[in-house]
Amino acid sequence: MEGFHFSISAELTEISLFGVRFEVSVTALYSGYVALALVLLAVVFRLFAFPRFKERPKGFQNVIELIVSAARNYTVSIGSKKLEGFGCYIFALMAYMLGCGLIELFGIRSPLTDLQQTAVLAVVSFVIINAYGFAKKGPMGRLRHFFPPYVAPIRIITELAIPVSMACRLFGNMVGGLIIMELLYSVIAPIVPGVLSLYFTLFHVGMQTYIFVTLTLTFTHEAIE
Protein backbone atom coordinates (compact mmCIF):
# COMPACT_ATOMS: atom_id res chain seq x y z
CA MET A 1 0.00 0.00 0.00
CA GLU A 2 3.00 2.31 0.23
CA GLY A 3 2.69 3.33 -3.43
CA PHE A 4 -0.81 4.75 -3.04
CA HIS A 5 -1.00 8.52 -3.25
CA PHE A 6 -4.19 10.42 -3.72
CA SER A 7 -5.41 13.94 -3.11
CA ILE A 8 -8.68 15.52 -4.11
CA SER A 9 -7.11 18.59 -5.66
CA ALA A 10 -4.59 17.99 -8.42
CA GLU A 11 -0.99 19.02 -7.93
CA LEU A 12 0.15 22.40 -9.19
CA THR A 13 2.61 23.09 -11.95
CA GLU A 14 4.31 26.28 -13.05
CA ILE A 15 3.96 27.60 -16.56
CA SER A 16 5.13 30.79 -18.19
CA LEU A 17 2.92 32.63 -20.62
CA PHE A 18 4.24 35.75 -22.40
CA GLY A 19 7.03 36.00 -19.86
CA VAL A 20 4.69 35.87 -16.85
CA ARG A 21 5.08 32.81 -14.62
CA PHE A 22 2.12 31.50 -12.68
CA GLU A 23 0.86 28.30 -11.13
CA VAL A 24 -1.99 26.24 -12.54
CA SER A 25 -3.22 22.79 -11.61
CA VAL A 26 -2.20 19.94 -13.91
CA THR A 27 -5.82 19.18 -14.73
CA ALA A 28 -6.53 22.74 -15.87
CA LEU A 29 -3.39 22.72 -18.01
CA TYR A 30 -4.26 19.45 -19.74
CA SER A 31 -7.89 20.36 -20.26
CA GLY A 32 -6.54 23.42 -22.05
CA TYR A 33 -4.35 21.20 -24.19
CA VAL A 34 -7.31 18.94 -25.02
CA ALA A 35 -9.42 21.93 -26.06
CA LEU A 36 -6.55 23.30 -28.15
CA ALA A 37 -6.03 19.94 -29.85
CA LEU A 38 -9.74 19.67 -30.66
CA VAL A 39 -9.83 23.19 -32.10
CA LEU A 40 -6.73 22.52 -34.22
CA LEU A 41 -8.24 19.25 -35.43
CA ALA A 42 -11.46 21.03 -36.37
CA VAL A 43 -9.58 23.76 -38.24
CA VAL A 44 -7.48 21.19 -40.12
CA PHE A 45 -10.58 19.23 -41.11
CA ARG A 46 -12.34 22.40 -42.23
CA LEU A 47 -9.44 23.64 -44.34
CA PHE A 48 -8.09 20.45 -45.85
CA ALA A 49 -10.66 17.66 -45.64
CA PHE A 50 -14.05 19.30 -46.15
CA PRO A 51 -13.37 21.02 -49.51
CA ARG A 52 -12.57 17.62 -51.00
CA PHE A 53 -15.84 16.03 -49.87
CA LYS A 54 -18.00 14.71 -52.66
CA GLU A 55 -21.66 14.06 -53.28
CA ARG A 56 -21.04 10.35 -52.90
CA PRO A 57 -19.13 9.78 -49.68
CA LYS A 58 -16.42 7.20 -49.36
CA GLY A 59 -13.70 6.35 -46.87
CA PHE A 60 -12.91 9.12 -44.44
CA GLN A 61 -15.95 11.17 -45.36
CA ASN A 62 -18.16 8.22 -44.49
CA VAL A 63 -16.72 8.07 -40.98
CA ILE A 64 -17.22 11.79 -40.38
CA GLU A 65 -20.78 11.71 -41.70
CA LEU A 66 -21.56 8.67 -39.55
CA ILE A 67 -20.37 10.40 -36.37
CA VAL A 68 -22.13 13.67 -37.11
CA SER A 69 -25.42 12.05 -38.06
CA ALA A 70 -25.24 9.80 -34.99
CA ALA A 71 -24.94 12.86 -32.74
CA ARG A 72 -27.82 14.58 -34.53
CA ASN A 73 -30.07 11.51 -34.50
CA TYR A 74 -29.41 10.95 -30.82
CA THR A 75 -30.28 14.58 -30.03
CA VAL A 76 -33.53 14.34 -31.98
CA SER A 77 -34.43 10.96 -30.45
CA ILE A 78 -34.15 12.21 -26.87
CA GLY A 79 -35.52 15.67 -27.49
CA SER A 80 -37.71 16.48 -30.43
CA LYS A 81 -37.33 18.12 -33.83
CA LYS A 82 -37.07 21.45 -32.01
CA LEU A 83 -33.70 20.43 -30.59
CA GLU A 84 -32.03 19.68 -33.91
CA GLY A 85 -29.59 22.60 -33.73
CA PHE A 86 -28.58 21.44 -30.28
CA GLY A 87 -26.63 18.58 -31.81
CA CYS A 88 -23.50 20.70 -32.30
CA TYR A 89 -23.25 21.46 -28.60
CA ILE A 90 -23.78 17.78 -27.80
CA PHE A 91 -21.08 16.80 -30.28
CA ALA A 92 -18.61 19.31 -28.86
CA LEU A 93 -19.38 18.18 -25.31
CA MET A 94 -18.86 14.54 -26.23
CA ALA A 95 -15.58 15.25 -28.01
CA TYR A 96 -14.25 17.31 -25.12
CA MET A 97 -15.28 14.83 -22.42
CA LEU A 98 -13.92 11.83 -24.33
CA GLY A 99 -10.67 13.69 -24.95
CA CYS A 100 -10.37 14.64 -21.29
CA GLY A 101 -11.16 11.12 -20.11
CA LEU A 102 -8.97 9.25 -22.56
CA ILE A 103 -5.94 11.43 -21.78
CA GLU A 104 -5.69 9.17 -18.72
CA LEU A 105 -4.32 6.50 -21.07
CA PHE A 106 -1.09 8.53 -21.26
CA GLY A 107 -0.66 8.38 -17.51
CA ILE A 108 -1.85 11.94 -16.97
CA ARG A 109 -4.47 12.64 -14.34
CA SER A 110 -7.75 13.14 -16.18
CA PRO A 111 -9.13 16.70 -16.02
CA LEU A 112 -12.53 15.22 -15.19
CA THR A 113 -11.22 14.10 -11.78
CA ASP A 114 -11.03 17.73 -10.69
CA LEU A 115 -14.16 19.22 -9.15
CA GLN A 116 -13.43 22.60 -10.74
CA GLN A 117 -13.44 21.17 -14.25
CA THR A 118 -16.66 19.19 -13.80
CA ALA A 119 -18.27 22.22 -12.18
CA VAL A 120 -17.36 24.29 -15.23
CA LEU A 121 -18.96 21.70 -17.53
CA ALA A 122 -22.08 21.54 -15.37
CA VAL A 123 -22.45 25.33 -15.21
CA VAL A 124 -22.02 25.65 -18.99
CA SER A 125 -24.70 23.02 -19.49
CA PHE A 126 -26.97 24.78 -16.98
CA VAL A 127 -26.59 28.14 -18.72
CA ILE A 128 -27.28 26.58 -22.11
CA ILE A 129 -30.33 24.72 -20.80
CA ASN A 130 -31.84 27.93 -19.45
CA ALA A 131 -30.83 30.01 -22.47
CA TYR A 132 -32.58 27.49 -24.71
CA GLY A 133 -35.62 27.55 -22.46
CA PHE A 134 -35.81 31.35 -22.62
CA ALA A 135 -35.18 31.46 -26.36
CA LYS A 136 -37.80 28.87 -27.27
CA LYS A 137 -40.55 29.80 -24.83
CA GLY A 138 -39.91 33.47 -24.10
CA PRO A 139 -39.40 34.93 -20.62
CA MET A 140 -43.05 34.61 -19.63
CA GLY A 141 -43.33 31.04 -20.79
CA ARG A 142 -40.25 30.05 -18.82
CA LEU A 143 -41.43 31.89 -15.70
CA ARG A 144 -44.83 30.20 -15.89
CA HIS A 145 -42.88 27.08 -14.92
CA PHE A 146 -42.56 28.61 -11.42
CA PHE A 147 -46.28 29.20 -11.07
CA PRO A 148 -48.37 28.98 -8.81
CA PRO A 149 -46.32 30.77 -6.13
CA TYR A 150 -46.47 28.05 -3.48
CA VAL A 151 -44.52 25.59 -5.63
CA ALA A 152 -41.97 28.23 -6.67
CA PRO A 153 -39.43 27.54 -3.87
CA ILE A 154 -39.39 23.81 -4.66
CA ARG A 155 -39.06 24.48 -8.38
CA ILE A 156 -36.21 26.96 -7.84
CA ILE A 157 -34.33 24.50 -5.62
CA THR A 158 -34.87 21.76 -8.20
CA GLU A 159 -33.45 24.01 -10.92
CA LEU A 160 -30.43 24.99 -8.83
CA ALA A 161 -29.77 21.37 -7.90
CA ILE A 162 -29.17 20.49 -11.55
CA PRO A 163 -25.63 21.91 -11.93
CA VAL A 164 -24.59 20.76 -8.45
CA SER A 165 -25.77 17.22 -9.04
CA MET A 166 -24.24 17.03 -12.53
CA ALA A 167 -20.86 18.28 -11.30
CA CYS A 168 -20.79 15.99 -8.25
CA ARG A 169 -21.96 12.94 -10.20
CA LEU A 170 -19.30 13.28 -12.89
CA PHE A 171 -16.58 14.09 -10.35
CA GLY A 172 -17.52 11.22 -8.04
CA ASN A 173 -17.67 8.65 -10.81
CA MET A 174 -14.36 9.67 -12.36
CA VAL A 175 -12.59 9.90 -9.00
CA GLY A 176 -13.96 6.50 -8.03
CA GLY A 177 -12.44 4.98 -11.16
CA LEU A 178 -9.16 6.81 -10.54
CA ILE A 179 -8.89 5.60 -6.92
CA ILE A 180 -9.65 2.00 -7.87
CA MET A 181 -6.97 2.09 -10.58
CA GLU A 182 -4.42 3.70 -8.24
CA LEU A 183 -5.12 1.05 -5.59
CA LEU A 184 -4.71 -1.72 -8.15
CA TYR A 185 -1.41 -0.28 -9.37
CA SER A 186 -0.11 -0.14 -5.83
CA VAL A 187 -1.23 -3.69 -4.91
CA ILE A 188 -0.69 -5.77 -8.07
CA ALA A 189 1.45 -4.05 -10.65
CA PRO A 190 1.73 -6.56 -13.54
CA ILE A 191 -0.99 -7.34 -16.14
CA VAL A 192 -4.13 -7.14 -13.93
CA PRO A 193 -4.47 -3.31 -13.92
CA GLY A 194 -3.91 -3.27 -17.66
CA VAL A 195 -6.87 -5.57 -18.24
CA LEU A 196 -9.09 -3.78 -15.75
CA SER A 197 -8.26 -0.36 -17.13
CA LEU A 198 -10.17 -1.43 -20.24
CA TYR A 199 -13.22 -1.05 -18.03
CA PHE A 200 -12.20 1.69 -15.62
CA THR A 201 -10.56 3.94 -18.18
CA LEU A 202 -12.14 3.22 -21.56
CA PHE A 203 -15.67 1.98 -20.91
CA HIS A 204 -16.19 4.09 -17.81
CA VAL A 205 -15.34 7.33 -19.62
CA GLY A 206 -17.69 6.49 -22.47
CA MET A 207 -20.46 5.65 -20.03
CA GLN A 208 -20.08 8.88 -18.06
CA THR A 209 -20.00 10.90 -21.27
CA TYR A 210 -23.20 9.20 -22.40
CA ILE A 211 -24.89 9.90 -19.08
CA PHE A 212 -23.81 13.55 -18.93
CA VAL A 213 -24.96 14.16 -22.49
CA THR A 214 -28.26 12.37 -21.92
CA LEU A 215 -28.97 14.36 -18.78
CA THR A 216 -28.19 17.65 -20.56
CA LEU A 217 -30.55 16.68 -23.37
CA THR A 218 -33.30 15.57 -21.00
CA PHE A 219 -33.17 18.78 -18.99
CA THR A 220 -33.13 20.89 -22.14
CA HIS A 221 -36.12 19.01 -23.48
CA GLU A 222 -37.88 19.63 -20.18
CA ALA A 223 -37.01 23.36 -20.36
CA ILE A 224 -38.55 23.85 -23.81
CA GLU A 225 -41.58 21.62 -23.27
Binding site: I8, R169, G172, N173, Y210
Partner: peptide
Protein backbone atom coordinates in the same frame (compact mmCIF):
# COMPACT_ATOMS: atom_id res chain seq x y z
CA UNK B 1 -32.01 3.51 -22.58
CA UNK B 2 -34.51 4.48 -19.87
CA UNK B 3 -32.97 1.83 -17.61
CA UNK B 4 -29.46 3.19 -18.12
CA UNK B 5 -30.61 6.73 -17.45
CA UNK B 6 -32.48 5.86 -14.26
CA UNK B 7 -29.62 3.70 -13.03
CA UNK B 8 -27.32 6.68 -13.53
CA UNK B 9 -29.68 8.92 -11.57
CA UNK B 10 -29.89 6.41 -8.71
CA UNK B 11 -26.18 5.82 -8.79
CA UNK B 12 -25.64 9.50 -8.12
CA UNK B 13 -27.08 8.98 -4.61
CA UNK B 14 -24.31 6.51 -3.85
CA UNK B 15 -21.84 8.86 -5.49
CA UNK B 16 -22.90 11.75 -3.26
CA UNK B 17 -22.13 9.64 -0.21
CA UNK B 18 -18.79 8.72 -1.73
CA UNK B 19 -17.91 12.35 -2.46
CA UNK B 20 -18.85 13.36 1.08
CA UNK B 21 -16.68 10.57 2.49
CA UNK B 22 -13.76 11.70 0.33
CA UNK B 23 -14.22 15.27 1.49
CA UNK B 24 -14.30 14.14 5.13
CA UNK B 25 -11.09 12.17 4.76
CA UNK B 26 -9.03 14.40 2.49
Amino acid sequence: SLLILSLALIESIAIYGFVVALLIIF
